[in-house]
Structures are given as structure tokens and as C-alpha cells.
Write a protein that binds this DNA or RNA. Structure first.
Lengths: 355, 355
DNA sequence: CTGTTAGCGCATTCAA
DNA sequence: TTGAATGCGCTAACAG
């Protein structure tokens, strides 16, 4: 049963639109504050940015005037005049994915404490879109870029180089970084999980990932899985490998398909988003024992994984920390530290009941 | 068992830092393009913004020069000169919460097609923080604001009024809007769910929400629940009402507590975030039948709710649509439409197996 | 259709 | 410690 409610109202009443006399929006400027405080424009500018360089008397007079007038500085003009920016741009594959939200949160928190702000966009997993966004961000003269991606178009690379802004790449450890890197290694993590599953006694370990052709992170994870098999002395088996779209439904189908194609599979490592959760729910629906009938491991430690029945084995990646460290590295650069940073923040294998 | 890997490397190698001759970052300016194309500065400006006003010949010459030089316009200067902005600011309670991510996504998508961008911040559910962020956004001279909140500090209201920027409030339908509203009614939605549960035959319907003292949306939902009871001719029972923090664990505790305090409760309506999912998992762990032993309903239609066993009854709110419509209303205002908008986008009650 | 003049609001640099 | 001159890179308004 579905109830529905929706109404649309057009009204003429609104506080702002009635109060808005001068369209375009503005307010007091610095000179207005200067007049009110009986000082020069420069003194106001200083009172706001380097208050310690003024006598206590004038400083107070200026700040009082600022309060009284309700002056809000124009940081666009400040940016233009000083050639410095208080904004950093971050591009993630998808805003809706809570994994990236963690990274964004870490970045935003650190930037805020430094009085800076974050311009966010999502590329929809597309390099072309990323290129367009990088152009837009550079046009806004952001002070730095954080890219959750390590593949870029030639034009994007060229724009970044010409702009000379500091850049952080996250999401993987690239061979040839643009500038700074704050990340973990997808290949190392996938290999570690593969070895872990083997150590738990599983003989036929399946691997399900997103499309490795278009997604480097998926490709690296697959590489790690195969490296794990190799170091175990096991052969690669196409029946045990699948590439599927993201999503809960996709995970459930992948599990069922693989168990049909390779009935002796005893564990499946889902190296993408929420695939493992979808598979677990499917097992619940079918009454399959996890790990008795099939063991399930995931890649990211989503909050929910430790609440399901059974709880899910997975990797834990330092998403929030990546965001924080990225922001810190960027701030360092803007302050003039010129030591490029390559941070591999590592990962953990979290063993739970599902394996 | 936990594996761990983490390495930290400081290196001096980096493409950009070596290529970066002129620190501070810049590139070609418009006059460089003008020289290269043999035209005036204004012609370049027009070629980029109103190409149809130029002869095909000059336009091509300019755009070729732009390509060749790799010119990236400085929209900070453009903004200052034109007193227009290509950026909109959005403040949500939490970036990490995927509910808000949907709204953000809708906003960002619509803005992008209009060549605009989104500055995002989270207030951490605090009005004070919201005030600070509004100040920062206005300082950046954003062209509009989208606030997922309907309670604001007096100073915030004052700043907004003085700036004269268009504002959208989302997240509830306020009695006294600042400007435009694009939302749904929390009270109506909660009442509808309460009546729905009664129509399914449940006699003792519990209500669990977030803190109603600090969170207006929680307060409105509680009001809707009580209105529902009243129209059913049922009395308010404190034993059937709880306020708890957010989170899966919190939901599971709430369910257990309420069933201990009021053993005859036959359905619980969880009006916050992921509480219902936490409760369902707890029921699975304890082997309680849902809805046999206890029925469970949630508020937001998270993707996962239709995959759990059993699937969860909930409300469906038009999060993405709220983002889209907000952006559209804002764009309309910037273009000069001055009809304030009050949109109630409604909701649906989704009946599934858990009730 | 194209160019010229003026100035957006602030910070830098110098002088007082 | 404070102030005056100059310009950041671009667009509006006008002239040609």
C-alpha cells in the first residue's frame, strides 16, 4: 500500500524578497566600515587579518564598527587582490556513496579549522567529467585539488601543471603521481584478504569486483587477488572471477551465479562497495549458512557490516584519515612546505563471523 | 585477527613541484589570448561568454588562441567585475549521512547543467556552526544558499537579509520561511505512518526518535505521531515514546528497552536515520519474528531497507527531488523570476513485510 | 560587430 | 602604528 501526498504552492510572501531593495545582493564594503570607525581602508583590512599589528584602541574601534554595520568581508576581492584562495576543490567518483563521504568529511573538518572551505563535485566515475571539473575548479582559482582518482586525461594533467596548484591523489597509490599522494594500496589490500581467506582454510576463493576495464581501483584489486593466488601456488580460474555493476542486487546475483558456475566455491571476496551486503541478504533469504555453505568477505568496513547476522569480514580502509591527511598536506604546501608527500596509510583485515 | 600495513614515504620527486617555476600558481591571462589572436581584450571576453555576438571569423581566431595557449578563465575576477557568482552554498547537518548525500547530488546535478558549482559544508546539527558557515559562504559571495534546516540564529537571519541572496530551506516546512521552501512535512509524514500502522491492526504503536529538544525535525515527527494517535482516539503513553541518539546500535537498544518497559508493544515506528535497521538486526540476532513478535517501521527509504529479511516498511521522501527543485528555484531567482516558491513535495508510505 | 574607458573590493608596497 | 597610491583580471557601459 502506498499513500501519497504532495502540494505545490506559489506565494508572494517572503521576508527577503520584500526587504531586497538593491537586487544583486551586497552590503557594506570595507570603506563604509572605515568611515564609521574614522580610519583608513587599510586599517580595516589589517584589523581583520593581522589585528596584532594595530594598537588596541584602533583595533577595537574597527571591530566595533564591523559588528555594528554587520560587515561581511568580500573574499572574492581579497582572493583577486592577494592571489590567494581560501577554497580547495575535491572531486570524488560519487557524492552519494558513503565511502567517499567519509573522506570528504575528513577533508572538510581539517580545512575548516584552518579557515578554508571545500568545493565538492563528483565525476560519476568518468575521466572526461573529471577533466571538466578540474577546469571549473581552476577557473575558480582554488588553492589546491584533491582527486580520488589516479587516471587523468592529458588535458587535465596539462591544466594542473600550468596552474601550478598543489594536488593530492587519493584512492590508490599511483606509479607516477602528479604531485602528492595520500592513500592505501588496493592491490596490497586485496592480496592480504586473499591470503587471509586461505589461512582460514578456504580452498576455492571467488573474486567479484566492479568493471576492471574502466575502473583502475577494481583492476588493482583484481591484480592483488591474483597475486595472492600466485603466492599460494593456486591457479587462476575464470569461473571464480566476475565483474559486475555496483549495488546490493548486483551482489546477490553475483553470488548466486558464481555458485552455479562453480559449485565448489567455498568463499567469495566481494571487492566493491555494497556487493557483500547484497550477497549476505540473499543468503539469508535462501537460508544458506554463512560461512557454512558459503563464506563472504567485503572490501570496505561500512558501519553496517558489524551489525549484520553474521557480521561480515572485510578490509578497513582509513577513509576519514585520508581526507584529513590530504587536507593537511595541502595546507602545508600552501604555507610553503615544499616536501612532496607520498603517504600509504595502509589497511586492516577485519576477521568476523562470515569467514 | 587483524592485519595491518602502513608506510609513510617522503620523496622529492613530483612532476608539478619540479615544473612549478612561478610559485603561487597562474597561467595565461585574457590579454595574452588577445595578443595571440590579434584582437582586443573585450573581444576575448565576448568570445567566451556571448560567442553569437561575434563574427564567425574572430570567434574562431579567439577560441583557437584559447586552445593553443591553454587559457583557463579567472572566474574570481569575473565574479568581482560582474557582481555575479557561479557558486551556490549548501549546508547540510551531516555530509556522512547518505540521506543528505542524495539531496546534495540532486542540487549538484542541476547546477552543473547550468554551469554552476556547489560549495558544501556540514553544520554538525548545530545552529551556531550554521551561522558561521553562512557567514563564510556570504563572504565567498555565493549566488544563493540552500539550508537543510529551518531554525537559524538571529545573526544568521540578519546576514542573509543584508546580503539579499536567494535562500532555500529544505528538511521541513517552516511556518515562517526566510524566502523559498522546497521540502516535505515531517509531521504529516509521521502522522500518516502512525495511521498506516493502526490500519494494519497494530494496537500499541511505539515511537522512537532523535532528540526532540535540539532537533526540530525530530520534534515535528513526534508531533505527527501524537496527532495520529489523537485522530485514532488513542491516548499518549510515555512508555511508548523514546528519544535516543542516532546509529544502528542505538536502534537495537531502543527496541529492547521499549519491549521491556512496555511488553505489550506490538509495533515500533523508528523516526530517525538508521534506527530501524539496527532494531531489525537485533531482532534477527535474538530470533524474534518481525512482525510476529514486533513490527518495525522506518522513516527514510534507504536502499538497504528493501533488501533486508524481512524488508522494512518505511516512508519514502523525495530527497533527490528536493535537491533538484531547490537548485532550479535558485537558478530561477538568479535569472530574475521573483515568484517565491513554496514546494511541499510530499512523501509515500511504503508497506513491506516488516509490518 | 569591435574597441575604449572605468572600476568591482580588496591587498601589496611603499612612505609617513 | 597608520595611510596613499596602485593594480589583481575581468566585465559593464558606452563609443565607434
Amino acid at each position: 500500500m502506498i499513500w501519497r501526498m504532495a502540494t505545490v504552492t506559489e506565494t508572494k510572501k517572503s521576508r527577503v524578497s520584500e526587504a531586497k531593495v538593491r537586487p544583486g545582493g551586497q552590503g557594506a564594503r570595507m570603506r563604509d566600515v572605515a568611515h564609521a570607525a574614522g580610519v583608513s581602508l587599510m586599517t580595516v583590512s589589517r584589523a581583520l587579518r593581522e589585528p596584532q599589528k594595530l594598537s588596541e584602541e584602533t583595533r577595537k574601534a574597527v571591530l566595533d564598527a564591523v559588528q555594528k554595520i554587520g560587515y561581511v568581508p568580500n573574499s572574492v576581492a581579497a582572493n583577486l587582490a592577494s592571489n590567494r584562495s581560501t577554497v580547495v576543490g575535491q572531486i570524488v567518483p560519487s557524492i552519494q556513496n558513503s565511502l567517499y563521504a567519509d573522506t570528504v568529511k575528513g577533508t572538510a573538518d581539517v580545512l575548516r579549522t584552518a579557515g578554508m572551505h571545500l568545493l565538492i563535485a563528483d565525476s560519476g566515475y568518468s575521466m572526461q567529467e573529471e577533466e571538466a571539473l578540474i577546469g571549473a575548479f581552476l577557473s575558480q582559482r582554488v588553492g589546491g585539488l584533491i582527486l580520488h582518482n589516479t587516471d587523468h586525461t592529458p588535458k587535465a594533467l596539462q591544466m594542473i601543471e600550468r596552474a601550478g596548484v598543489p594536488v593530492i591523489e587519493t584512492g590508490d597509490v599511483p606509479r607516477d603521481p602528479i604531485d602528492m599522494v595520500v592513500s592505501y594500496s588496493n592491490a596490497d589490500a586485496a592480496k592480504a584478504m586473499t591470503l587471509h581467506l586461505a589461512s582460514r582454510g578456504f580452498k576455492r576463493i571467488g573474486f567479484v569486483s566492479l568493471d576492471t576495464r574502466t575502473n583502475r581501483r577494481a583492476r588493482e584489486r583484481q591484480r592483488g587477488y591474483l597475486a595472492g593466488l600466485k603466492s599460494l601456488g593456486r591457479a587462476k580460474d575464470p569461473l571464480l572471477m566476475m565483474e559486475v555493476p555496483g549495488g546490493l542486487t548486483s551482489g546477490s546475483h553475483a553470488m548466486v551465479d558464481m555458485m552455479q558456475r562453480a559449485p565448489d566455491v567455498d568463499a567469495i571476496f566481494f571487492a566493491g562497495d555494497v556487493l557483500a551486503i547484497g550477497a549476505l541478504f540473499e543468503a539469508q533469504r535462501r537460508g544458506w549458512k554463512v560461512p557454512g555453505r558459503i563464506a563472504i568477505a567485503g572490501f570496505d568496513d561500512l558501519d553496517i557490516l558489524q551489525h549484520t547476522v553474521p557480521r561480515l569480514t572485510c578490509l578497513r580502509l582509513p577513509r576519514l584519515e585520508i581526507g584529513r591527511r590530504s587536507a593537511e598536506a595541502l595546507l602545508g604546501r600552501m604555507r610553503g612546505d615544499d616536501a612532496p608527500v607520498l603517504l600509504d596509510l595502509g589497511f586492516e583485515v577485519i576477521q568476523r563471523e562470515s569467514t
